[in-house]
């Protein structure tokens, strides 16, 4: 929806995102000349710099944009739909399904066939979770949705823990534990291809619910009286759940679990969009992308011997922001 100030906000966030995207190409783990890399790519020459910029930094930066955007936008849509500012894309249990799928790839040793098996396994896990979720919820409302999400998420978490428990090879359990923390390191265009279709379809579905989310500010009865069909197979809830689940599942399959982006970004941007859910979707996409680009730059800049996982970093940054909100909220209600 158009609103002068929210359009201005989107333009500003988009500009920041583009600058950060450029920086992500420019600055990496190695001291190669990104400029030479770009020149070589333009000229069609193959060089180490061209490979690093074009085949490693570019897909990594694109994934930061897509995954951060999906998490931010999904969080905004879910918070709008459930009318609960604490909802997070994780509540649907689909990211847990993706984690389980990926962990099974580790466990069965399929990873030896190809590195791509990992995100593919995650994607299959996510899709199974989406089907289970949509089937479980059926025509039920928001409460059924939350219950089904919680049930699936604890089921998948238990199965993941079981798999971790059964893994014999200590190297494998170490890798699994690391993967579960979320990372964008060493992702290539193959990962982008795995992540993109679900993300695009999912975001389109989520965007199609924007007006209904606005109507829902006034309650379910008013939204229905204004012609929105909420439940049933073609209803708003099904489109939203399917969209969020597809997008978040595809992303988790590629990056592992990255927390707090979907929770914090919509929360921070909401006051700037006049508290109207549909106006929050685009800024939340951009804000999520920015947060993940910054976090990934930080991961590459810190050199502590061990690689810092991006999911750990977003949680470290997100939790204090949230604590700050709690303190201000408490002050305003006193």
């Amino acid at each position: 929806m158009t609103h002068p100030s929210s359009r201005g906000l989107s333009v500003m966030l988009a500009a920041v995102m583009v600058v950060l995207l450029g920086f992500a190409l420019w600055h990496g783990e190695s001291e190669i000349s990104a400029w030479h890399g770009l020149c070589d790519i333009m000229a069609g020459r193959s060089s180490v710099a061209a490979t690093i910029v074009g085949q490693l930094r570019l897909p990594r930066a694109l994934l930061a944009v897509v995954i951060g955007g999906v998490l931010g936008c999904s969080g905004a849509a879910l918070q709008g739909y459930l009318r609960n500012p604490l909802a997070d894309p994780g509540v649907l249990g689909v990211s847990s399904g993706a984690a389980l799928g990926a962990v099974c790839v580790f466990y069965t040793g399929l990873l030896r066939l190809s590195v791509v098996m990992l995100p593919l396994g995650g994607l299959i896990g996510a899709l199974i979770a989406v089907m289970l979720l949509v089937g479980l919820v059926g025509r039920g409302g928001a409460v059924v949705l939350l219950l089904a999400g919680a049930a699936l998420s604890s089921l998948f978490a238990a199965l993941t823990a079981l798999t971790l428990n059964l893994v014999q090879n200590p190297y494998a359990s170490f890798e699994i534990a690391h993967w579960l923390m979320g990372s964008l390191t060493d992702r290539t265009f193959q990962h982008v291809l795995i992540c993109l279709p679900g993300s695009v379809v999912g975001l389109v579905l989520v965007a199609s619910t924007g007006r209904a989310l606005d109507a829902l500010v006034l309650g379910e009865d008013v939204a229905r009286s204004m012609g929105f069909i909420l439940h049933g197979w073609r209803g708003v809830q099904t489109r939203l759940v399917l969209g969020v689940a597809l997008a978040v599942g595809s992303c988790t399959a590629v990056s592992g679990a990255i927390g707090f982006v979907g929770l914090v970004i919509p929360h921070l941007l909401r006051p700037l969009t006049g508290y109207q859910p549909s106006r929050l979707l685009v800024p939340s996409f951009l804000g999520g992308a920015i947060m993940l680009l910054v976090a990934d730059d930080a991961v590459r800049a810190f050199n502590w011997g061990v690689e810092l996982q991006i999911g750990v970093l977003t949680a470290l940054a997100g939790a204090p922001l949230f604590l700050y909100r709690v303190v201000t909220l408490r002050r305003s209600t006193l």
Binding site: G28, E29, S30, E31, I32, V48, T51, I52, L56, R57, T185, D186, T188, N303, E307
Partner: peptide
């Protein structure tokens, strides 16, 4: 670092 970019560089 055990990453693709570090190795290529």
């Amino acid at each position: 670092r055990p990453t693709g970019e570090a190795v290529l560089a």
